[in-house]
């Protein structure tokens, strides 16, 4: 039932919306994972980010895609909670600092062991629209635990103009989606973060 609802939601609403109202300029789409386990990390400007990233995958992978989303935001009321967990199939994530990093990533690890494709926004929040901020280090814990899982950086531009945080009116803009080469955890967490941030900056430099 939820699989059908998910299919309808994406194919009747989200895909046409992304295709006609927004319009994507995707570069190096072939670098996206075709099977799990994999982690897609992206900068975060808008609620549309998750939706756009999910439309980049074919229908047969839709059920395998698990966006990581803040528990405090998406479990705020039971309707959003139902929609977020059953239709979009988010992995609820505890943003508060007082929880141990290892525990916070428990559910994400489980999803990866289940061969799912995880979408993660290491900036932590949508923040200032269209400004790339440095990734938080949490992602390196996950990478260290799964050194063989590819981590694919994706830079998105334009969605923060179409629907920024705190706005309800969607205004059409073309959006760039630049996919980078997969990264793997090799030696230290700091080095991994430096490489990942550098990869994002390089992708961000690709506009024009």
């Amino acid at each position: 039932m939820n699989t059908l609802l998910r299919w309808l939601f994406f194919n009747l609403l989200i895909r046409p919306l992304v295709l006609i109202v927004l319009g994507l300029n995707v570069r190096r789409r072939d670098l996206l994972p075709t099977k799990g386990p994999a982690v897609v990390v992206a900068n975060h400007n808008s609620h549309l980010d998750t939706m756009v990233l999910m439309t980049l995958f074919p229908n047969n992978l839709l059920g395998k895609i698990r966006p990581v989303a803040a528990i405090d935001y998406f479990f705020a009321n039971r309707w959003i909670r139902w929609f977020a967990s059953e239709i979009v199939r988010i992995i609820p994530f505890e943003r508060r600092k007082n929880v141990d990093a290892g525990d916070r990533f428990e559910a994400v690890s489980a999803a990866l062991e289940n061969d799912e494709i995880v979408i993660f926004f290491p900036e932590g929040t949508r923040g200032e629209p269209e400004a790339l901020s440095e990734f938080k280090k949490g992602i390196s814990h996950l990478a260290e635990r799964h050194p063989h899982v590819p981590i694919i950086p994706v830079f998105m531009h334009g969605l923060g103009k179409a629907l920024p945080a705190g706005e309800a009116l969607l205004v059409p803009f073309f959006c760039d989606v630049f996919v980078g080469t997969p990264q793997y955890f090799e030696c230290t967490r700091n080095e991994f973060m430096d490489n990942l941030n550098a990869a994002m900056c390089e992708l961000a430099g690709g506009i024009n």
Partner: peptide, 26 residues
Amino acid sequence: SFLALKEYFSIIETRRADRRVLFWAY
């Protein structure tokens, strides 16, 4: 016209305050 206008609005600098104006322009 829609595709052309969308492309134009995507390449010019727009202020966040103009979002509603752009909406009316569409």
